[in-house]
């Protein structure tokens, strides 16, 4: 039920915000009840009295203190050190009402549920990072498999439930819960470092990375493709129709179908058909002459073409 005038007067908005900040320790529900129409009231004061608000009403901190007494609110548990407070107030005066700061401050509470999820995950992940040296992504397992997932899920559920209850109660942040949250934030840092170091180590050991470039063909150690095998007998006579197999009895038929200079080599469709692992393989080698025309060369020189004695 805020009047439209409240948002148009930056002086009133700033004063009201500083009063709210001074009462930040008051439970949210109670504070809202108390300050519901503070802006409207300050607008009245501003409209009926000349001069700046803090001249008429004193500092926002004093105003808040008087309000606290009149409304019967508990006194603040501890007063911040005066020296530190001076710096803090100066920073707040300089930047506290900057549009960007206000926008971020209004937006941050929306992220609280995300933090509840993260802190639940981080608590388990940090335990895992410390004891196992690695973090399961996305769910830590604690080395227990699915049981670990259940533990992680339970931790997140408990964290969210606690967060929801605390928000519903509107209770101010106690020292204990503050320290607990800082501790869990540190856990998150530990867990994230654990995840990051896993990523890095993967990059350092490329042996784990495989490059799938299809079936490999025969090559020499220097990379020259092997396009054919020409067997000779112990007495130096060329052999034909030699069948080659590997140690497991699998036929060796993975010749390269490209020569080193890019010439296409294809098995010749011969009659009668030869097994794919019969060597030397009858082939058609497609090259190019000096005019760029395709020249097919048959290898080895066809036995049928040679005159049979």
């Amino acid at each position: 039920m805020s009047a439209p005038t409240t948002s148009t007067d930056p002086e009133v908005a700033a004063y009201a915000r500083q009063v709210r900040e001074a009462l930040a320790d008051v439970p949210a529900a109670r504070l809202e009840e108390l300050l519901e129409d503070l802006e409207e009231h300050l607008v009245e004061v501003a409209s009926e009295t000349p001069g700046p608000l803090h001249e008429r009403l004193g500092s926002p901190a004093d105003y808040a203190a008087e309000l606290r007494r009149a409304a019967g609110l508990p006194e603040p548990a501890a007063v911040a050190g005066q020296g530190r407070r001076g710096v803090r107030e100066r920073v707040q005066e300089r930047w506290g009402d900057h549009a960007a700061v206000v926008a971020v401050r209004d937006f941050l509470p929306e992220l609280r549920p995300a933090w509840w999820v993260i802190r639940g995950w981080a608590a388990v992940a940090a335990v895992e990072a410390v004891f196992l040296g690695q973090v399961g992504v996305p769910l830590p397992t604690l080395g227990l498999g699915p049981v670990g997932w259940v533990v992680t899920g339970a931790a997140i559920a408990w964290s969210v439930r606690t967060g929801l209850r605390a928000r519903a109660a509107g209770a101010p942040l106690t020292h204990a819960s503050g320290f607990l949250n800082v501790g869990l934030a540190l856990c998150a840092v530990v867990a994230v470092i654990g995840v990051a170091s896993q990523r890095t180590s993967t990059e350092y050991y490329p042996a784990e990375v495989s490059y799938d470039s299809g079936p490999t063909t025969l090559t020499h150690e220097d990379g020259t493709p092997i396009t054919n095998i020409v067997p000779y007998g112990p007495d130096g006579t060329p052999l034909t129709g030699v069948l080659l197999y590997d140690q497991d009895g699998r036929p060796i038929d993975n010749l390269s179908d490209w020569t080193g200079d890019g010439t296409v080599v294809e098995p010749q469709v011969s009659v009668p058909a030869q097994p794919a692992n019969a060597y030397p393989q009858a082939q058609v080698v497609t090259g190019y002459d000096e005019y760029g025309n395709e020249v097919d060369e048959v290898f080895p020189a066809p036995a049928t073409a040679a005159p049979t004695p």
Binding site: L34, L35, R56, D62, Y63, L67, A70, A71
Partner: peptide, 14 residues
């Protein structure tokens, strides 16, 4: 004080 009156009004209202 202004704050006293405002606080009192809000408390009586609550």
């Amino acid at each position: 004080g202004d704050a006293s009156v405002y606080g009192t009004l809000r408390r009586l209202y609550a």
